[in-house]
Design a protein around this nucleic acid. Structure first.
Lengths: 132, 132
DNA sequence: ATAAATTTGTTATATTATAACAATGCGTAA
DNA sequence: TTACGCATTGTTATAATATAACAAATTTAT
């Protein structure tokens, strides 16, 4: 049988904890270094945990940064519709949860008639702090 | 003086040509291999050309694939608003140019009042061919 | 309990990208 | 013209990101 959908292995819990504590997106190798004391020794262990956590919607990957953030939305158990706000100056990343936006994108249909089951949107600009 | 904005160096022309000819997104190292006959020998030469072409809006990077596509929109000279349609099965990528979508995203404002000068959107699904 | 299947650990290596510095070209002011 | 400063290009080396392949351990099905 395949792994139960709501169960996290030890490694997955450790990795998730680190990412949830972090105030900014974490890189895979920085996660690796900070969990080496806890018994995770090699990249595949981290990447497997990351893959699984992504599938569960517990974390998201910021593609433009190759970094990972915890999903702030408690009820989010799928990872098929994500939008982020990224500051070009301080690199702050926040997840955007805007029902209008989600609805607009989920229903978007292009000229070819192709329909989508997943999207990722990354906005870049200067955050309030950095604009001052 | 800084490089003229509408002038492409030899390496930039070569790299652009390869990407324009390709029917699918190209990876940096696959570009490198195919241009070695033409005198480009090392990664930094390719990456510099790619960076410049991106800034000029001649090509775009598909972040989820670390691959590069030519901009189909002739008049596109900036690279600050991109949207792509990506087939999960055949990996086909096409640029979406939908004025409504662009307008919607360009004007999007989140709760924090942060304003954006750039966005990248990637849609995933099955293309017509693969859905059959 | 044992075989089959899945998950986890481990080693090695592939892939993607950039730092650092040298060589070359290019504009300009003496 | 030449020599100086500055930007661009070439080159070597290496950093950063990610996965293949297989072994060991654990779980599941019978």
């Amino acid at each position: 049988m395949t792994q139960k959908i709501d169960f996290l292995s030890k490694n997955q819990q450790i990795v998730l904890e680190i990412i949830e504590k972090a105030k900014e997106p974490l890189k895979a190798y920085s996660i690796l270094f900070s969990v080496q004391k806890r018994g995770i020794k090699a990249p595949p262990q981290v990447y497997r945990a990351l893959d699984r956590l992504i599938k569960l919607g517990k974390i998201h990957k910021i593609e433009s940064k190759n970094a990972f953030v915890a999903c702030k939305n408690d009820s989010c158990t799928i990872s098929n519709a994500t939008a982020f706000s990224i500051c070009d100056s301080c690199e702050m990343v926040t997840e955007i949860s805007n029902p209008k936006l989600s609805k607009y994108l989920a229903n978007f249909q292009d000229e070819t008639g192709m329909r989508y089951n997943k999207y990722n949107l990354e906005f870049f600009g200067l955050c309030k702090k950095c604009k001052k």
